[in-house]
């Protein structure tokens, strides 16, 4: 490789990610079809859920990688549209229906039917998918996804009854923790992405943000995204 013409790694990454996403889509569809062809009593086994869950996780990571790449390269800018929030959160929760059922996790949704928000559908969906997938890993058996307005902010919040977020994350949500924690496999990439996307949403001088805390009604971790 010529020194004057350095390898554009991010571009190669972006195209590889795109390709992987397509393959993953085929994989997920085929999986669902294969399991659909099994006899009824075998259809509900946890292995299917695990396969789907892990594939979804890879898919989420890829969406986030691609999303960050695009935002950094100004390729795809924020597209704020009016959203029916209840439809939106139902749809995101539906992605994990099989997983939640197989793990015995109960999820409750709360949102007024006429709640209308203004945000980029795909990017905020990326945040929620990542958060739901994470919570599914750390919760004991319960989750609550709520959305509504607080002081003019649209707040979407996901709480669980697991052991909660570590203090370091709560103090600096969205900062890439130096290095990767190989023991937990956590890269905080998801939170980094969430914080970035939230901050891109602005209205007047109000800017979106994320907040992490522990406790609340269910006693576990609470993830909140504030959108102006």
């Amino acid at each position: 490789m010529n020194e004057n013409n350095p390898l554009d790694f991010s571009m190669i990454m972006a195209s590889a990610v795109h390709d992987m996403k397509n393959s993953l889509g085929m994989l997920l569809n085929t999986l669902e079809e294969v399991f659909g062809e099994l006899p009824k009593e075998m259809q509900n086994q946890p292995k299917l859920a695990t396969l789907q869950y892990e594939a979804e996780r890879v898919n989420n990571d890829l969406i986030q990688l691609l999303g960050i790449y695009r935002l950094e390269n100004q390729q795809l800018r924020l597209r704020v549209d009016e959203q029916y929030v209840s439809d939106f959160i139902e749809e995101q929760a539906a992605r994990y229906e099989t997983l939640f059922e197989s793990r015995g996790i109960k999820i409750t949704l709360e949102c007024e039917a006429d709640c209308i928000g203004y945000f980029d559908h795909d990017l905020v969906a990326g945040i929620l998918n990542n958060t739901l997938a994470n919570a599914a890993r750390y919760t004991k058996d319960e989750m609550k996804l709520t959305a509504g307005f607080e002081d003019g902010w649209l707040v979407i919040s996901l709480s669980d009854n697991g052991r909660g977020y570590p203090q370091a994350m709560i103090d600096a949500p969205g900062e890439i923790v130096k290095g990767i924690n190989f023991q937990t496999g956590s890269t905080s990439l998801g939170l980094f992405f969430s914080a970035k996307v939230a901050a891109l949403h602005s209205q007047g001088d109000k800017r979106g943000r994320i907040e992490l805390s522990n406790g609340g009604e269910l006693g576990g971790g609470i993830f909140k995204i504030y959108l102006p």
């Binding site: 397509n22 669902e32 439809d87 749809e91 539906a94 992605r95 099989t98």
Partner: peptide, 14 residues
């Protein structure tokens, strides 16, 4: 894509 039944149903319902 990828489309799963649950997601398609929610989207279609809405």
């Amino acid at each position: 894509k990828p489309i799963t039944k649950a997601v398609l149903q929610k989207r279609m319902d809405a």
